[in-house]
Design a protein around this nucleic acid. Structure first.
Length: 283
DNA sequence: ATCCCAATAT
DNA sequence: CATATTGGGA
């Protein structure tokens, strides 16, 4: 029984892990038309990896990545030579909007947690996430909202910290306290102070994904890693020295679910909750 | 060049 | 409504 995870294997995981978890056809947003032809993807610098033309529509996309089709390809084509029946390379094709699925968001949160506040900038986050086709702008936009979300969480946590902690602790904090390191939506910033990432010269080279979970590379030989769950952030797992497999993959939790449970708790505790704590609130 | 943030657009 | 884009300052 071999227990090591070699670098080769790690790379291998990173590759097939998402292919294995490609969404079933039913899970995919139905596309009325092809998103982009393989040759066009090339022209636009959209990495198509090893995808053949046959598998291009699915294999090109990571498992947690759903693209929503745009409609109306009419003005997307530069009408090169007048041949209209046979789509020629568009020059002004717009990228489809990115949908931040829970899986994709989890990658994002894990990446931010991995990097720490100082290094968590769009470009680096994008690199850590390692999702083909993901742009810096995608990440920047998401990060902007995510920071607002964290700010709100902190404010709410602070406000609820003082009054009668014994009587009725704030739902969010109460449920955050048990330190489940796998809750995908736990605000990373609240845990980040406990990370030691500042010395890592190149954090992007020290990780890989397996089953949509971010792993740090196994530490040096014969150097078992303490795994204090409470001290680790969401989705952060050290590969234990004794096994090649991570203990458990995180249960999927979205904020609707999170909030629904929160409301249940509130109801049970007679707490009147003013507003849902949504991930990215609008009003 | 990249980041950041608010406002605005789609 | 969620995400994209823009604009101006650092």
């Amino acid at each position: 029984m071999r227990q090591e995870v070699t670098e080769e294997e790690a790379k291998c995981f990173a590759r097939w892990d998402w292919e294995e978890q490609l969404p079933s056809p039913q899970e995919l947003v139905p596309l009325s038309q092809a998103l982009i032809a393989p040759d066009l993807a090339l022209a636009f610098g959209i990495p198509s990896s090893s995808a053949t033309s046959a598998s291009f529509s699915s294999a090109v996309l990571p498992e947690d990545y759903i693209l929503v089709a745009h409609h109306d390809a009419s003005d997307l084509y530069a009408s090169g030579g007048g041949g209209e029946d046979d789509p020629e390379p568009p020059r002004t094709l717009k990228r489809p909007r990115l949908v931040w699925t829970p899986q994709l968001h989890k990658r994002f949160v894990d990446a931010v947690a991995h990097l720490g506040i100082a290094n968590a900038v769009p470009k680096t986050i994008m690199q850590i996430m390692g999702v083909e086709g993901l742009t810096r702008e995608n990440v920047a936009s998401h990060l902007q909202k995510y920071r607002l979300y964290l700010k709100r969480v902190k404010m709410q946590g602070l406000a609820a910290a003082s009054p009668s902690p014994s009587a009725s602790p704030h739902p969010f904090l109460a449920r955050a306290a048990p330190a489940d390191p796998f809750l995908p939506y736990m605000p990373a910033a609240m845990l980040q102070q406990q990370y030691h990432h500042h010395k890592n010269p190149d954090p992007t080279q020290q990780h890989y994904y397996h089953q949509n979970q971010l792993f740090l590379n196994r530490p040096a030989q014969g150097q078992p890693v303490a795994r204090p769950a409470a001290a680790m952030g969401p989705g952060m797992v050290f590969v234990p020295a004794q096994t090649t497999k991570p203990a458990q993959s995180a249960p999927l939790v979205n904020d609707s679910e999170w909030n629904r449970k929160g409301e249940e708790d509130d109801a049970a505790n007679g707490v009147a909750r003013k507003r849902e704590l949504t991930l990215f609130p609008t009003g």
